[in-house]
Design a protein around this nucleic acid. Structure first.
Length: 327
DNA sequence: AAAATAAACAACCGCTCCCTT
DNA sequence: GAAGGGAGCGGTTGTTTATTT
């Protein structure tokens, strides 16, 4: 709109914040709240633009910020949510209490993105780079996987297309939704009012799941080339993006955390287990998953575990606080 | 021990969205 | 409905710190 930038005033300080500046900003906000960010610097006696103050506050000074290393659970949450949401850092941050979008973004760019790349996963699409290799493998198991993957991919594309349509409709329909007695109903989604399958989710995480479950630990060495990821049995609820995925309305934050716990149980142990077995002599085929059982019955458990996992992550997403900008 | 390189993090910039007038 | 302004978001850059040679 041709608006002048807020930070072009001569004399405004840029660059790293000093402890004195931090103290001024903290003291002012604690006493008055931030109010108008644009007006804040003058009131607080800071030679900074409001934008800079806001950033400093939200990313560093805010008292409810957790700093330090990301836990495995947090890593998993970020990856999964990124698979679902893309680079919507603020949306992802709403599911990681006490973490800022900037911090998550930085962590993704410096750690997780590289890690996924090493695992043979495109960090943008969360799709395996080994699909071609997989398809030429010829094993019946992989053929079955392909079938599942095709179903999922098809459903995913469909869901994404729906998402695009809805995003266009959203601005028009949001008022109606707010006043609607059927909050789960999304106009144009093809779902019936009150249906539990009104959920719209791009399913972009299948390769991440596979790799994370099967290839996480061995990827870092890069042994066996860039194709070191084992193509584990495909996970999910085959046949539909929505079967096995129950949308539950009206969940509380506790429910969210409960979902996280389930996720933690269902996922972290895989990670930890893999990490513990980092040195295993995986050859890709029999290093399939969870605890390294590698047996057919294990696959069944694996299937269930991951079904539960997906239910959990989607519940987590769907039961976000209403303030969440995600959906 | 010093230089070079890589990694991590904080902050800036420009754009978009949303609200108000 | 259009315009203006504020705030937030995501991409990118710059600086600092750690690691390697």
């Amino acid at each position: 709109m041709g608006r002048s930038p807020c930070c072009d005033k001569v004399g405004l300080k840029k660059g790293p914040w000093t402890p004195e500046e931090d103290q001024k900003l903290l003291a002012y906000i604690e006493e008055h709240g931030h109010g108008s960010w644009r007006a804040l610097p003058a009131k607080a006696g800071l030679q900074r633009c409001g934008k800079s103050c806001r950033l400093r506050w939200t990313n560093y000074l805010r008292p409810d910020i957790k700093r330090g290393k990301f836990s495995l659970q947090e890593e998993q949450t970020i990856i999964q949510l990124h698979a679902l949401l893309g680079n919507r850092w603020s949306a992802i941050a709403t599911h990681l209490p006490k973490r800022t979008d900037n911090e998550i973004k930085n962590y993704w760019n410096t750690h997780l993105k590289k890690r996924l790349a090493k695992m043979g996963i495109d960090p943008v699409t969360h799709k395996s780079k080994n699909d071609a290799l997989l398809s030429s493998d010829g094993e019946s198991k992989n053929a079955a996987n392909l079938s599942h993957m095709a179903q999922w991919e098809s459903a995913r594309l469909e869901a994404e297309a729906r998402l695009v349509r809805e995003s266009k409709l959203r601005s028009h329909s949001i008022q109606h939704q707010l006043s609607s007695t059927t909050p789960g109903y999304i106009p144009g989604s093809g779902s019936s009012p009150g249906s539990t399958s009104a959920l719209v989710q791009p399913q972009r995480s299948l390769d991440v799941l596979k790799a994370w479950n099967g290839g996480w630990s061995k990827s870092s060495e890069g042994a066996g080339g860039e194709n070191s990821i084992s193509m584990t049995e495909f996970v999910g609820t085959s046949g539909s993006t929505e079967s096995g995925i129950i949308k539950e309305e009206g969940k509380t934050c506790d429910d969210v955390h409960a979902g996280k716990n389930v996720m933690e149980e269902g996922f972290t142990h895989l990670l930890l287990g893999d990490s513990a077995e980092r040195s295993l002599s995986d050859n890709g085929k029999d290093s399939d998953h969870s605890g390294g059982s590698g047996s057919g019955s294990g696959s069944s458990n694996y299937y269930e575990d991951n079904k539960n996992y997906w239910n959990s992550i989607l519940n987590l997403v769907n039961s976000s606080p209403s303030s969440s900008p995600m959906f």
